[in-house]
Amino acid sequence: MIEVISADRCIGCNQCVSVCPTNVFDRSGGKVPVIARQSDCQTCFMCELYCPVDALYVAPDSEAATGITETELKERGLLGGYREKVGWGKGRKPVASHGFMVQLSRRAGF
């Protein structure tokens, strides 16, 4: 589930507040949104993907918070990893256009 919003990186665009399908975040008076309803998080990673500055981290465990910290995430280079793989962001090529899709479809049928 969603665990971290990096205050260092967040630019207060509230994109995560808008795109979260289960309405987990609240806008706050300050610039960084609040994780207001963490237990409603369905671990779909969409907020992370839509964050333009890679400020969010969704831990894979959908049942319980792991307590991972921003420092750990930065050390392990985990912030923004999903968006990079999907190929969203300036100068990136969407993975949707990757030639491997054609090869896989021929070999495996999907």
Partner: peptide, 20 residues
Amino acid sequence: DLQPLLRVAQTNFFLPFDRL
């Protein structure tokens, strides 16, 4: 030789594994 193709076609499938 299929593994890199699988990784690209379903990036989210590998996300939890990579993170752990």
